[in-house]
Amino acid sequence: MKRFGKLVIFLVMVAMLSTACATATPAAPAESTGPFRVAVVTPSAINDLAFSQSMYDALAKIQGEMGKDKFEFVLSDGMFVVDDAAAAIRDYASQGYNLVIAHGSQYGAALQEIAPDFPNVSFAWGTAGDTFGIPNVFAYEAFSQEGGYVNGVLAAALNKSGTIGVVGPVEVGDAKLYVDGFVAGVKATNPDITVNVNYIGSFGDVALASEAAQTHIGAGADVMTGSAQMVVGAVGVAKEKGVLWFGTQADQTSLAPEIVVACQIYDWAVVVRDMISLVQSGTMGGKAYAVSLENEGLKMVYNAGFALPADVKALGDAAVKGIIDGTVTIGVGGK
């Protein structure tokens, strides 16, 4: 029975602690006159040079435009555990943030349950195209196949060996969209080029991404691309071997200024700005956004340090133009 005695003491202590310290911090109510307050929940670190960072950069940019007194944001990064993220979303909503951004397609189900409980808070989630018909939910996605296609066109033009390598994470979602767009771009430019695609089964395994890049180069690739945060391993290899690299999600030029040709970057600011103005005018949600080359939520960033031949650059620009005016059909995802 001694054990039970100990347990009782244990539990009493817990109870005492909980009652003694249960002092709720008052939640600041949302006011139209105060700053616009945004909370964002991201699955990976905000400095991942990929998906999470793209949202952080956008919010920092908006804060720069609007000023710190007009725009505040808080964040919880590394929330890859879905029900932890759900708790965070619920908590931020209950604290009266104007807009809670759930920056990961895995958060959709949680948002679907939480959003109806907080009709005065706007929620946004992505990448996804579905607002579930809930009036206070926005959705946003990226037509990442578009920049993928442009990268593919450029890659095909620069390719000499006849082989291009692609390092992907898990064969789904945004990454797969980008990769499929890239392959389409290469094939449209030169159908004879072999595009080797490999998915390493993880968003985090930098070592395997690096080895995959080595293998691609061994198989003859002289141009490579890849998606998600583990590709930094592949970029390192490309740099060492002098193989050209095309990036996506964030500007990866700083990783290897010698060999990065171009990157498709996500500028969510386009989307978030519109959400803010809608919320401020009383529309809480219901709109599904897609960043694209057309609305400049997707941008092609060329590495100024890389001597890209003018005719190749022209091909890229033509592809961008064609995608925008609809003369180029990628055949992957899209409007």
Partner: peptide, 30 residues
């Protein structure tokens, strides 16, 4: 809790690392 399953290529996104943390909890419980 979840009523559906989704993967991001890690175990922890589903388990919340309970498979490891449960070991710790068991030991804390003697």
């Amino acid at each position: 809790v979840n009523h559906f399953m989704i993967t991001d290529g890690t175990a922890a996104s589903f388990t919340g690392s309970a498979g490891f943390n449960g070991i710790v909890a068991a030991l804390f419980g003697q």
